[in-house]
């Protein structure tokens, strides 16, 4: 078991981070901590993709015009890095929307606790 973990250290770390982020987003009552959980969850996936794209001993996939290009097998796969960059943009947009909603909720209900907000919303509906 241990050698498998040692060989796939990044993947194991990504899995643990994803689980922490997922449970935080699902279970934590504080809105800010939920957003941190979401960022952690997405970062874990980017770590997973980046570790898949990296191959020890290979070059960054950047070709220079004045240097003779090595064989394509000497480069790492550039696609996971592209996916991670796109994913980060998407993740930042979603986090921004969530933060904006949190600010609006806080201004209206003066708390970041989602359960308390739910109670206040219910009370306002019944009033």
């Amino acid at each position: 078991m241990l050698p498998v973990i040692k060989d796939h250290l990044e993947e194991v770390a990504a899995l643990i981070l994803f689980s922490i982020g997922f449970s935080n987003l699902l279970l934590n009552r504080n809105m800010i901590k939920k957003i941190i959980g979401f960022s952690m969850m997405d970062s874990a996936i980017y770590l997973f993709l980046a570790s898949y794209g990296y191959i020890a001993g290979r070059l960054a996939p950047i070709m220079e015009s004045d240097v003779p290009a090595p064989s394509v097998t000497q480069y790492v796969n550039p696609l996971p890095a592209g996916l991670v960059l796109t994913g980060i943009v998407v993740s930042v947009s979603t986090s921004a929307i969530m933060l904006a909603l949190t600010v609006r909720l806080y201004r209206r209900y003066h708390t970041l606790d989602i359960d308390k907000i739910a109670l206040l919303v219910k009370e306002a509906d019944e009033a």
Binding site: F22, L25, M31, L105
Partner: peptide, 16 residues
């Protein structure tokens, strides 16, 4: 108030 809370809930589940 309710739409704000509903949108937040929607976002949380959709982010999961």
């Amino acid at each position: 108030g309710r739409t704000l809370f509903a949108a937040t809930q929607y976002m949380i589940f959709n982010m999961l």
